[in-house]
Nucleic acid binder design. Sequence first.
DNA 1: TACATTCAATCAAACGTTTGATTGAATGAC
DNA 2: GTCATTCAATCAAACGTTTGATTGAATGTA
Lengths: 212, 212
Amino acid sequence: MTQAPPDSETRARLIAAGLRLFGQTGYDGTSTRALAAEAGTNVASISYHFGSKAGLRQACARDVAARVTGAIVADLPAPPSTPEAAQALLEQVGRSFVAFIVTSPDARDIVAFLVREIMTPGEVADLVYSEFLEPRHRMVCALWSIATGQPAESERVKLSVFAMIGQALYFRIGQPIISRRMGWQDIGPSEAAQIADTVAAQIRATIESQRR
Amino acid sequence: MTQAPPDSETRARLIAAGLRLFGQTGYDGTSTRALAAEAGTNVASISYHFGSKAGLRQACARDVAARVTGAIVADLPAPPSTPEAAQALLEQVGRSFVAFIVTSPDARDIVAFLVREIMTPGEVADLVYSEFLEPRHRMVCALWSIATGQPAESERVKLSVFAMIGQALYFRIGQPIISRRMGWQDIGPSEAAQIADTVAAQIRATIESQRR
DNA sequence: TACATTCAATCAAACGTTTGATTGAATGAC
DNA sequence: GTCATTCAATCAAACGTTTGATTGAATGTA
């Protein structure tokens, strides 16, 4: 990263700017001039590197998929063999997911970008789905299956996992509301831990109620 | 300022158009011409009735707050006195919330509009929060408190309720993804019932785990 | 007539994109 | 080693289009 050629550096800065601004103000709400200014370059660089503003949007999607997948896959051990181990792993996955989502400054932009793309399906959403969301969901379903004994691809398991993702995600989407209602100035380690506890407790309770 | 009477038909059609288009393509992604066409009127009507495009946005927020509050308050009985009754009521609230959110065509626009406003805090989000979200959250917390015995304004209860809202909401936000993963063509009564079961089961499991 | 409402036409500003010129580091012939 | 040439990368400026807003005339109603 220290010796990156000047061309790819501008490219990288544009993707970072796209992630931040698209996430903050939306695709339509972000002008090419604002993108160029945020990246410290000229508007023409967008056309040059990505063909168009839409091309930059797609490049951002690819970057998100690659980055988040890498982060999640990195710290996942071999699949557990006992329900107890699977449950413990699920709780841990939930905790680190929440920790990443509510504390990382990058996560704010990434999640906001993803949610916006998901709400308005298009080819960018398709890319994110097949490249990132579907495989991850499938993986967590497999864990859930080991923990509960339910079939991994059953509707019950798939929906339970979506519910788990949904509650975690909401702590980022609704963060302005949550902070306000909780009386929190901002979300530090202590607040993040409380959220992680809440999510982990729900995972535990739901798994145990399904295990029979 | 708006000097038009609040019961104008064009006014109502513009608000409906705003809810639909702002929700679908976002505030910035919606042009005044598209709004006028959707409402079957002229662009100048927006200025005339709401002062500006931003004025229409705010009118939409007020409409959402009034409409959803009315719908929820309408079918809520007196506060229950036993934990069991409170839990049953919470499950029922969760079920009807999910039913409304995933099946009603109006709900799609309303939820999409709300989520977009919440993600980018502004004066519209402030209005929605104090006028609608905060009172509703407080109400559900009171129910949760009766069901579990936990203090209504404790952080644990408040966060649990947010998690419950989050998972329900996600079934609308992520609906394109969920339908795809589940192999559903669209979400009819049968699919809505499965989602409602999932949410209700999580509510039940979480409440029971907290009741001790 | 007087008033409220909607209309087509128009405006300046901002938009995404394209252009032609410029830069500095490689490349190769001599 | 020197000089001419090439190339990716960036820039300011301008392109035509679309944006939100405004205008004055037209329409309907009482």
